[in-house]
């Protein structure tokens, strides 16, 4: 699974990080780092929850990409 990150939409809610701190990394201001995220198999459930909790819809789940 891959998470497509729309960095411009991130407003620092940090809901993704709250669900999966190992998957989503924040900068010093609390915003997500740029770049899409490859999710390891064991992290998929929490990563998906984190992505779907984004109040800005900045994270898109691409389920077609293998780990």
């Amino acid at each position: 699974m891959r998470i497509i990150v729309d960095k411009a939409k991130c407003q620092g809610h940090a809901r993704c990080w709250a669900h999966a701190p190992d998957v989503f990394t924040l900068d010093d201001e609390g915003y997500i780092l740029p770049g899409d995220i490859k999710v390891a198999m064991g992290d998929e459930l929490l990563a998906a929850r984190g992505a779907r909790s984004c109040p800005e819809r900045a994270l898109e789940i691409d389920g077609t990409a293998g780990p």
Binding site: Q11, H13, R49
Partner: peptide, 20 residues
């Protein structure tokens, strides 16, 4: 409830500074 993308702290650049 899981995956709760509520907007209690607003949306956009003015997302509540003190939200955390």
């Amino acid at each position: 409830r899981e995956e709760n993308s509520h907007s209690a702290f607003a949306n956009g650049p003015h997302r509540c500074l003190g939200s955390h």
